[in-house]
Amino acid sequence: MATMTAHDDMSRDKSSEPEQNGPFRELVRRRRAELNQSLDQFAAAAVDPVSGEHVKRGWIHRLETGQPVTPPEVRQLRALAAACRLPLEQLQDAAGSQFHGVDPLISGSTEAKAYVHKLDRLPADQRERLLRLIDTLVPPEE
């Protein structure tokens, strides 16, 4: 009969593994659906404009189906941002939340946090119009 050490218990602790279901997974799944792209089309567009690195179809499939994936690095996030046609920061926030438990609003003012949480309740077309309005008032950072 084998004895189990504390280390063995730790290796089986699901809380030590990256979260497979969360805001990053949902963002990528939702955005691919909104773009009406097949997995192959989406993966072909997932190219980092800086390094040229591609995110493979299989990784995207595993992410979308909730299977274990290695958390993405900035190169992969830039590639997925290109495929999603979204700002890099949006993917960074979702990935940080899902894989590292980081609240992207933690450093914002309470007023800013309240606004952002309300944005999630707006339809996509209204969020887009509001973002365009904000961009006229405060140009996006380069």
Rank of each mutant, 00 (worst) to 15 (best):
M1K: 15
M1P: 13
M1H: 15
T3Q: 13
M4N: 11
M4W: 11
D9V: 10
M10A: 15
S11N: 13
S11T: 14
R12I: 09
R12T: 10
R12A: 11
K14G: 13
S15C: 01
S16Q: 15
P18M: 04
P18S: 08
E19P: 05
P23S: 11
F24K: 04
F24H: 04
L27Y: 11
V28C: 13
V28S: 12
R29M: 07
R31W: 05
R31F: 06
R31P: 03
A33S: 12
L35T: 10
L35M: 12
S38P: 10
S38N: 11
A43P: 10
A45C: 13
D48L: 01
D48K: 03
P49C: 05
V50K: 11
V50C: 02
S51K: 12
H54G: 03
H54C: 11
G58N: 13
G58D: 12
H61L: 09
H61A: 10
H61C: 03
R62N: 14
R62F: 04
L63A: 05
L63F: 01
Q67D: 12
P68V: 00
P68F: 01
P68E: 01
T70E: 06
T70D: 04
V74S: 03
L80R: 00
A83C: 04
C84D: 04
L88F: 01
L88V: 04
Q90K: 08
S97F: 03
F99C: 07
H100K: 07
H100D: 07
G101T: 05
G101V: 06
V102K: 08
D103G: 01
D103M: 02
L105S: 03
S107M: 05
G108E: 07
G108H: 06
G108F: 04
S109R: 01
S109Y: 02
T110S: 12
E111L: 01
A112S: 08
A114H: 02
V116P: 00
K118T: 08
L119V: 06
D125L: 07
L131Q: 15
R132W: 12
L133Q: 07
I134D: 11
I134N: 12
I134L: 15
D135L: 02
D135K: 10
T136G: 09
P139I: 05
P140D: 09
E141Y: 10
E142K: 15
E142Y: 15
E142A: 15
